[in-house]
Amino acid sequence: MTQVTDAPARSRAQIAAKTLRKDQWWRQPAVNATFLGIAVIYLTWASLVNNHYYAAPLISPLYSPCLATTCTAHAGFSWIPWVAGLTPAILIIWGPMGFRFTCYYYRKAYYRAFWQSPGACAVREPHAKYTGETRFPLILQNAHRYFFYVAIIFNLILTADAVFAFRNAGGGWGHMSLGTIVLIVNAGLLWLYSLSCHACRHVTGGRLKHFSKHPLRYKAWTFVSRLNAQHMQLAWISLGFVCFTDLYIRLVSAGVFHNPQFF
C-alpha cells in the first residue's frame, strides 16, 4: 500500500535584512524629498504671506486670478468679499495644488520619498498594512482627471497674464520686459506639463479601442504620448519655474531690483 504524505509547507525565503541592495538606493528618494520639501515650504509661505504678488503688469501665478475684494489694486477682479488679513491665494491654490498632488508622477515621488511605500524597489517598506489607493483619502487620487480640466483653465488664465505683460506699468500696450519673458516661459512650461499628463493622454485618445477609426485623435494621442515620456522632467521644471516666477515678481514688487524693460 502506498503511503501518501503531504508535501512540506512552502514559505518564502526568510531573509532578515530590509534589503540586500548595495547601491545608494536611498539617494533618489532623499533628493526628491529635499526638493519637494523646499518647493512645498516656499509655495506655502508665498501663498500665505499675502503681499508683493503684483508688480504692474506682472502678477504672481500663485495669486492669479486674484478674485478677492482684498486683492492689490488692478491685480485682479475683486469679485469675492474677503477678509483683509486672509490671503486671496486660498481661493485658487486648490486647483493647481490638487492637479500636482494627484499627478501620477508626483504620487510616485512622494509615496517613495515621504511615505516609504516603498522607499526604493526591493527595499522593505516599514508599514504593517497596505491598502493602496482603495480607501479614503487616497481613493480621491482618482479625481486627477478633473484636476486636469481645472489646470487647463488656470493655464488659460496664466497665458492671458503673459499676454497682458506686453503692457507697461501704465497699461499701455506694445511693451516688453524681462518679466514678460518670465511669464511666457512659465505659462509655456505649465502647458507642457499639463498636456503631458496621463489623464490628458487618456482623454485625447488613450480611451479608444480603434485608433484607425479616429485618425485625428490618434495623432493627438501620439503627440501627447511623446510629451508624456518627459512628464517627470516637465513636472520638476515647471514646479521650479513657478517658484522662480513668484520670486521674481516678489522681488520686483518689493523694490529689490527693477524689472528690465526692453521696449
Binding site: 501620477y104 504620487r107 510616485k108 509615496y111 517613495r112 511605500s117 516603498p118 524597489c121 526591493a122 497596505y130 491598502t131 493602496g132 489607493e133 482603495t134 487616497l138 481613493i139 496621463h198 493622454r201 487618456h202 488613450g206 508624456n228 515620456a229
Partner: peptide
C-alpha cells in the same frame, strides 16, 4: 488595481523594458 500606487518598480525591473506603469497600469 486600486492597490497599485504606481511607484514604477515593475517598470524598473522589466528585462524586456516594457513600460508597464505608463502604458498599461495608468491607462
Amino acid at each position: 488595481l486600486g492597490m497599485c500606487n504606481i511607484t514604477k518598480c515593475c517598470t524598473e525591473v522589466c528585462p524586456e523594458n516594457i513600460h508597464i506603469t505608463d502604458n498599461a497600469l495608468i491607462p
